[in-house]
Write a protein that binds this DNA or RNA. Sequence first.
DNA 1: AGCTGCGTTAAGATTTTTCTAAACCAAATT
DNA 2: AATTTGGTTTAGAAAAATCTTAACGCAGCT
Lengths: 195, 195
Amino acid sequence: MWAEIPKFPEFSEISEIPKISCDPGNPEGAYRVKNLTQSRSEFAELLGRTAQAFGLTPSVGQIYGLLYLSAQPLSLDEIAESLDLSKASASIGARQLEALHAVQVSSKDSDRRDYWEARLEPQEVLQKMMSSVLMPRLTNAHNRLEGLLERMEAEKNSGELSGPEFTVCQQRIQQLITKTDHFKTWLPLIERLVK
Amino acid sequence: MWAEIPKFPEFSEISEIPKISCDPGNPEGAYRVKNLTQSRSEFAELLGRTAQAFGLTPSVGQIYGLLYLSAQPLSLDEIAESLDLSKASASIGARQLEALHAVQVSSKDSDRRDYWEARLEPQEVLQKMMSSVLMPRLTNAHNRLEGLLERMEAEKNSGELSGPEFTVCQQRIQQLITKTDHFKTWLPLIERLVK
DNA sequence: AGCTGCGTTAAGATTTTTCTAAACCAAATT
DNA sequence: AATTTGGTTTAGAAAAATCTTAACGCAGCT
C-alpha cells in the first residue's frame, strides 16, 4: 500500500549466490586461500556458495571446486592447506562428495595417503543428488501427508475439527499428494534432460 | 579401508526433511503452536522444513502451511498467534510469499487489517521460484565463469599458471559453461513438466 | 491535534549451522 | 613394542541464519 516496491533483501539480490563471509582483516574472502591463483580460489568460492544453494556446506563445494580445476589428484593435507580448512573438514567434505559420486579416491602403492580427484561429469552429480536426495524426500513427504489425512479424520470424529473445515483440509492435502506423485513420475525424465 | 560404511549423519537421514528444533521444555515441536489442531500444526511444521530445503526460512513455510489449510483468509495477528511467531516474522514471511505468488493479500472495507490467503496452485509457486530464482542464478553463474576464463588467461600470461594447467582449467570451465547453457535451455520445459 | 491500531523496519538476541582443535584408532615403520 | 603418520570422530568454538523486541510511520478516528 504505502511502499510501492517492498524491499526484501533476499529477493533483491536473489541472483547473487549467497555470500560466504570472511574474517574482517581480510575483506575479500576469495583471496584468503593459500597456494592458489586468484582465479582458482574464486572458482572454489563460487562453488562453495553454489553448494549452499543445494543444501550442502560451503566447504564441500569449495573442495569440489578445488579438485575440479586440479590437474592431479590431491591429498587431504593439500586440500586443507589450499583452502585453509581444517583437515577434519576436508575429510568430512571429501567423503560426502564421494557419497555423491562427485569425487574419486585412489591410493598410490608407495604412499599411505588417499588421493582425491574430481569426477568431471557434474550432471551425474546432479542426477545422483536427485535420485538419492530428492526422490526419498518425496516419498517421505507422501507418507507424512497420508498419515496426516488419517489423523485429521480422527480429529473430525472427535469434534476438534468442524465438518466443513475438514472437507477443505482433506481436499487440499489430497491435491498435494496427487501433485507429489506426479512429480515423482516426472523426476526420472527430468534427470535425463539435465544430463 | 577400515570403516566399511562411513557414517555421515546428513546422508543417513537424508530422506528426512531436516528438523526444526524446539525448546527443551517441549520436545515435540509440532505441538508448540497455539490455536491449531495437532494435524494442522504438523502440516505447518512439515512445510517449514520443506521451505528450508528450498532456501527459504522455516517461518515462511509454516505460514504457507497454515494458510493452505485455512478455510478463510487470516490476518497477520492470527498468523503470528497460531504459529507462535512474532508479528514481524509473520509480516516479512507473508510478504516473501506474496513475492513468490504463493499467497494473496486482500483487505475488507470495514477493517484496516490485511487478510492473507494461500494460492492453491503450489506448482505455480515452484514455477515462479524456478524462473525468479534459478534462472537468474544460472545467468549469474554463466557470467562469473566467463569472467574467470579471462582472468585465467591473464594468469597464464603472467606466469602464475603453467601452460598445461591452464589448458586443463580452460577446458573444464568451458565444459561447465556449456552445461550451464544447456540447463538454461531445458529449464522452461522442466517448468512445464512440473506443472 | 492527539490517539489508536496496523504493518514495517532495524538492532540485537537466539538458535542453528558449520568449522576447528584435539583426542583417537589403525596401519606401517623402526 | 614403540613411534610415526594418515584419517576419523567428537566436543565445543566460531560464524551465519533466523527470529524477536522495540521503535517507527502512516492512516483513520475521536
